[in-house]
Nucleic acid binder design. Sequence first.
DNA 1: TTGTATGCGTTATCAG
DNA 2: CTGATAACGCATACAA
Lengths: 325, 325
Amino acid sequence: MANIKDVAKLANVSVTTVSRVLNNRGYISQETKKSVQDAMNRLQYQPNEVARSLFRRQSYMIGLIIPAVSHPFFAKLTHFIEFYAHLQGYKIVLCNSLMESNKEKDYIEMLKRHQVDGIIMGSHTLEVEDYKEVRLPVVSFDRQIAPKIPYISSDNFTGGIIAAEHLIEKGCKKIAHISGSLALNVLANKRNDGFINTCRKKGLEYCVYETDINVLENDNYEDVINRLFREIPDVDGIFASSDIIAAKVMKKCSELGKRVPDEIKIVGYDDTDIAKYMVPGITTITQPIEAMAKYAVDYVVKQLDEELVPNETVLPVSLTARGTT
Amino acid sequence: MANIKDVAKLANVSVTTVSRVLNNRGYISQETKKSVQDAMNRLQYQPNEVARSLFRRQSYMIGLIIPAVSHPFFAKLTHFIEFYAHLQGYKIVLCNSLMESNKEKDYIEMLKRHQVDGIIMGSHTLEVEDYKEVRLPVVSFDRQIAPKIPYISSDNFTGGIIAAEHLIEKGCKKIAHISGSLALNVLANKRNDGFINTCRKKGLEYCVYETDINVLENDNYEDVINRLFREIPDVDGIFASSDIIAAKVMKKCSELGKRVPDEIKIVGYDDTDIAKYMVPGITTITQPIEAMAKYAVDYVVKQLDEELVPNETVLPVSLTARGTT
DNA sequence: TTGTATGCGTTATCAG
DNA sequence: CTGATAACGCATACAA
């Protein structure tokens, strides 16, 4: 690979001059500019971004730490994060934490050593103090880590309300929420608050079931769902905290011979593609994933530009009605 | 951020000595080693990997170019690629090409400028000559780009055969294949060859429908599916070239009142999660995605170690029978 | 066992 | 308008 020196030699100029045409900086005569460009082309010169990064102490890389890209929600989020990062000239270094806190910690260190310009944090197994030493711009997803770390989430509380209200409107009398682990310090748990609040207000019988911390172990979902149907055989409405759980519930209903939506109604969460694909389509709470991704990238970049960013950014959710209700 | 000089100063040694304890190289007394480590801890020193990369001309980064992580197949593939890369100390820079050839080209250049050690190529809109200038280790997914670029795929031809045979065994008399764009130069198209071969051999009526090049535009899928059912109303078996297409077919069947699998049978491809979630579960051709990911990473690393790698690596597929047949 | 000097490829400063 | 040089943070060859 040719470097700036080779170009300089071939064009009979100094490296400084080559650097100038490379960066369009300073005065330069048209002739030399052209001859330098010719040399670049002949050598197929590509500037070494590692050297540039070292010098300017900026890598144009953003680290993204999530539980797992294989999960549809994070796949979609990652997709848009990469998209908007690319628009602004940033690259994404992908890290799947698998919800293991030591992996999460290692990834943060690794990213720092690699001099990423910022980190988008969507996996949350660490404590607040673990973030003390991270002196990089961080944007958190779906969790309020510390006052100084801006977070982005959708309006989980309202999401829980909408879901519960929808089930109630549709005539459900005995509803359950299948929640993610409430032990986890994430804002998604506010869905449960919204759900419970609404049930209480309307004087409805309700119940909450928690899944494991692990986002990946789907087996655990099935255990929870089995338990739910065993303990509340006459449940007629389920609010599932992800479309995947909703799909699993649908499958169970089919096994049990419960007709959806006639005998039991289901509301999912996220509005990932699976909600559309299922037959019938899953009524779900739509998270504005693309907007969330865009904000995450913007906030990293803005912090780098030393612009002020809001600490809390809560984007609206909405109900997307389909066949399960 | 403290650098090696700061550590040296605090420990009252030279940077060389610090470098030595950092890399466990050369002779060093226990005392100085300890005092250097103390200094490192006190300063929370983290080596700057950008500087290291510049020096050793190796970044431990691998570029991954795919059409879109949001697609379940690529999400799963990406997940495992990152997993195995991390095991070997490599980082993944994620690039979604959206199947736009200029984006694909730009990403390749960008990755080279950033001095990635290798590229895993899962998006294929470019011509062979576009790869002439890529002087990096490349591993291609599902396409034979050039003799010198090793590729990994699963046995698409056999996949097509298995799918067709399964539909025929199950009693289908008039079957169709919904294929990806056959204009694309990818090995997935061999599924179609296997399908057609089998149908001919068994003397069965068959038909092939192609979708667009674009993996993302699902609207197009629906058009194709609509056309299929309009033109062959009595089709009783469909081989869909992805689980997503299969799911869309199921939805259409539900709209048309066609009972699956009684009136029409469906075989998908990939065995992504959606095949499990759908009700009934989708009978599908299982690709060994994890193994494919592992091989891709291994081959990049082996090329870097100047080990020989096979040009063609075709992994076996298998049928996973579920409810749609 | 430890230190000095040099270079990795680039950019900024400053002098011409 | 152009060029020599130092510096970014680190690791190696070579001295001591």
